[in-house]
Computed example of a mutant assay.
Amino acid sequence: MTRSIPWQQRLSTGTEDIQNEVIGWYQRTRHGKAYVPHMIWGTLQTEAYATVILRRVVDFLGVPDDVAAGVAKRMERQQVLYDGEHRYDVVLGEQALYTNVGGGQVMREQLERLLREIDLPSLELGILPATADFGIVPMPGFNMREDRVDYELVSCGVDITDAGELALHHKAFDALGGAAHYGDSARSLIGKALAFWSND
């Protein structure tokens, strides 16, 4: 089954409620996967980076302004990285390291955090080089839980639960992950981006 819900409906009370809902998803998901081509995965965002993102969401969609409360919830959700009970496989597109979210200082702090967190036992973080040939057509980012795939589109969030579609998403994630760089190679790509923002 595929279900879409307009963002204005999901965010009708602001950003805090949906972030609280996401906390529940993450707490229930023992092994999650995420492909994020153009920005930093929410569960690794710094407070400053998340503030810029949620401010843009509120301004663009015209929903109630509770950015500070939404950011606090997003920071709370990150505890799953440290509780020893969860695991996340994450592939960031190299472009995510360069998409300007808040300017040089915000980006430097964000990339420094990636370098600090890359060795977390709960995290397998890969960087998909911009020139990688990963054998499938380019696609928007998605998050996977055991029983669903979630997309965040411009106008709505889309949830997919059909078993056949989930299997295709696992296959796609394997292709993306197979072309991504990990460990020292990923650190090198992050370090190159950090040098770029340090010269900004």
Results as ranks from 00 to 15, higher is better:
Asp89Thr: 03
Ile23His: 02
Phe60Trp: 12
Leu168Thr: 14
Leu97Pro: 00
Trp7Glu: 01
Ser185Ala: 15
Glu47Trp: 02
Asp147Asn: 13
Arg28Cys: 04
Ala180Ser: 15
Phe134Glu: 04
Gly84Glu: 02
Asp119Asn: 09
Asp119Leu: 05
Arg77Val: 01
Tyr35Glu: 00
His169Tyr: 15
Glu165Ala: 15
Val67Leu: 04
Gln9Asp: 15
Val106Arg: 08
Phe196His: 15
Gln79Gly: 08
Tyr88Gly: 00
Arg108Ile: 13
Trp41Ser: 01
Gly141Ile: 07
Val63Met: 07
Leu54Met: 07
Gln78Pro: 09
His38Trp: 05
Gln9Trp: 13
Arg113Cys: 01
Val57Asp: 08
Lys171Val: 13
Glu85Gly: 00
Ala163Asp: 15
Val106Gly: 08
Tyr26Pro: 00
Gly178Asn: 06
Phe142Thr: 02
Trp41Phe: 10
His38Thr: 07
Gly42Gln: 02
Ala96Ile: 10
Gly157Tyr: 02
Arg77Asp: 00
Leu44Phe: 01
Trp25Ile: 02
Ile40Trp: 00
His169Met: 14
Pro140Asp: 06
Arg145Ile: 10
Leu111Tyr: 04
Gln110Ala: 06
Arg116Ile: 01
Leu168Ser: 14
Ile136Tyr: 03
Ala96Asp: 07
Val158Thr: 12
Leu61Thr: 10
Leu111His: 08
Glu152Thr: 08
Ser12Thr: 12
Asp65Thr: 03
Tyr182Ser: 13
Ser188Leu: 15
Lys33Trp: 05
Ile5His: 11
Ser12Phe: 06
Gly104Ile: 06
Val67Cys: 06
Gly178His: 09
Gln78Ile: 06
Val137Phe: 11
Asn100Phe: 05
Arg55Glu: 11
Pro37Ser: 02
Gly157Ala: 08
Ser185Asp: 15
Leu176Tyr: 12
Ser12Leu: 02
Ile40Glu: 00
Gly102Lys: 05
Ser4Leu: 05
Asp17Leu: 11
Phe142Ala: 04
Gly104Asn: 12
Ile118Cys: 00
Pro37Val: 01
Ala186Val: 12
Glu109Gly: 15
Val106Ala: 06
Pro140Val: 09
Ala68Asp: 15
Glu21Leu: 07
Pro140Ala: 04
Gly102Ser: 05
Asp66Trp: 10
Leu120Asn: 05
Gly178Glu: 07
Arg148Glu: 12
Leu44Ala: 00
Pro140Asn: 03
Thr13Asp: 13
Val149Leu: 08
Val67Ala: 04
Thr46Phe: 04
Lys192Thr: 15
Ile190Asn: 02
Gly177Trp: 13
Glu109Thr: 12
Ala96Trp: 09
Asp59Pro: 03
Trp197Gly: 10
Phe142Trp: 10
Pro6Cys: 11
Ile118Val: 07
Glu124Asp: 14
Thr43Ile: 09
Asp133His: 14
Phe60Arg: 15
Gly126Pro: 12
Tyr49Pro: 01
Leu168Val: 13
Leu11Cys: 07
